[in-house]
Amino acid sequence: CKVCGDVASGFHYGVHACEGCKGFFRRSIQQNIQYKKCLKNENCSIMRMNRNRCQQCRFKKCLSVGMSR
C-alpha cells in the first residue's frame, strides 16, 4: 500500500492501496470528514502498525501519494 506499507489489495482511487486505506479514503471523501488537527505538526509517519493514530496525517498522505476520486 502506497499509504501505509501494508499489502495492497488492488488499484484503488488511483494508487495501489490496502483495504484499510481504501475504506478510510472512501469514507473521508463521501462523508466530507474534517479531521482533528494533528498534534505533531502534521508530520506523522503513517505505517501499517500506527495508521489509525492520526487521521489528519493519514488523509494527507492519501492525497500526497495520488489518491483521488
Rank of each mutant, 00 (worst) to 15 (best):
K36I: 06
C54P: 05
K2W: 04
M47T: 15
M49N: 13
A17M: 01
Y13R: 04
A17I: 04
Q55D: 13
K36W: 08
V3Q: 00
R51S: 11
C38V: 05
Q30K: 10
R26Q: 14
F59E: 07
R51M: 08
Q31Y: 09
C18Y: 01
L63H: 04
I46D: 11
G10D: 07
N43W: 02
I46Q: 08
G5K: 06
Y13P: 01
C38D: 01
Q30G: 05
F25R: 04
S45T: 10
V3C: 00
C4D: 14
L39Q: 11
S45F: 15
V7R: 13
C54N: 03
R26C: 08
V15E: 04
N50C: 04
C57Y: 02
C62A: 12
E42V: 02
C57E: 03
C54T: 03
G14F: 05
C18Q: 01
S28G: 03
S45E: 15
N32M: 07
R69T: 15
V15D: 03
L63Q: 08
M67A: 05
N43C: 11
G5A: 04
S45I: 12
L39W: 05
Q30Y: 02
R69D: 08
H16Y: 11
Q30M: 06
C1F: 07
G23S: 15
K37E: 12
K2Y: 03
I46K: 02
C4W: 01
L63D: 07
V7I: 13
F25N: 04
A8N: 06
R48K: 12
C38G: 01
G5R: 01
C44S: 14
S45R: 09
R51F: 06
V7L: 11
G5Y: 00
C4E: 04
Q56W: 15
N41P: 09
G5I: 01
K61R: 10
V3D: 02
H12I: 03
G5D: 04
N41C: 03
V15G: 06
C54K: 10
V7S: 11
F25D: 03
G20S: 14
L63W: 00
L39F: 05
N43Q: 11
F24K: 00
N32L: 03
Q56L: 12
F59H: 07
S64M: 11
N32Q: 14
N32G: 11
F24C: 00
R27C: 03
M49I: 15
I29Y: 01
H12M: 00
K2E: 10
N50K: 08
R69A: 15
H12W: 13
H16G: 07
G66T: 01
E42I: 05
S68W: 00
Q31T: 09
K2V: 07
